[in-house]
Amino acid sequence: MKALYKVLEEIKKYKELLADIRELDFKIEEYEENFIRDSKSMPDIKSSKTNNVKSMVQMALENKENLLMQKAKKKMRLKRIDNALSILSDEERDIIQIVYIDCKRYCMVQEKLNLSYQRIKQLEKQAAGKMEKYIFINE
C-alpha cells in the first residue's frame, strides 16, 4: 500500500515538474544572455589575469551544465509518468488525470464517468499498481 501511495504522490507532481522545466529553461536562457553580455563588456585582458578569466568561464560553464542536468532529470521523471499513464485504460487514466494531475474532487470523476466512489477508488488502486514499475524503475 505504501508503494501505491508513493506512485500517486509522484503523479501529483506532474504540473510542478512541467513548471520546474520551464523555469530551468528561463534560467538557462537568462544565464546565456548575461554571459554573452558580460563577456562583451570585459576589457582586454593581460596575461596575468588570464587564469582568473578562465576560472570565471569554467564556473559559468559548470553552472549552465548543472542547470541542464537538473532539467534532464525532471524531464525523465515526466517521461516516466507519461509512459506509466499510457498503459492505463481510459477510465483509469481519466481518474488519475482528474484527481491527481488536475487536482479535482472525486465527485468530478463520479459525474464524468458515472461511477460510484468505491469503484473509482478500486480503479485508482489498480492504476497505481500498474504504474508503479514504470515510475520507479531504479528502486
Rank of each mutant, 00 (worst) to 15 (best):
Q126Y: 03
S116M: 03
V99S: 02
K46N: 12
R119A: 11
L61A: 08
F136W: 09
E33T: 00
G129L: 13
K130W: 04
K104Q: 15
P43W: 02
C103N: 15
I87D: 05
S116G: 13
R80K: 13
K40L: 12
N138I: 15
K73D: 03
N52E: 14
E29W: 05
K74E: 05
K64E: 11
K133I: 13
S89Y: 02
M56N: 12
V7W: 10
Q126F: 00
Q58E: 13
I95A: 00
K133W: 01
K79Q: 13
K112M: 15
V53C: 08
Q70M: 14
A19E: 09
Y5N: 10
S55V: 02
R80S: 00
Y106I: 15
E32W: 03
K74M: 14
Y100L: 07
I101V: 12
K54Q: 12
E91N: 14
E132I: 09
D25E: 10
Y100P: 04
I135H: 02
K15T: 09
L8A: 06
Y100T: 04
Y14T: 03
E111T: 05
N52P: 00
I11E: 01
L113R: 02
M1F: 03
F136D: 08
R22I: 03
R119N: 11
D44E: 12
E91P: 01
K64T: 00
I95H: 04
A3M: 08
A84E: 02
Y117E: 10
Y134E: 08
I45D: 01
A60P: 00
Y5W: 07
K46L: 09
V53I: 15
E92K: 06
E9F: 02
R105W: 06
D94N: 11
E10G: 00
M42W: 05
F26R: 14
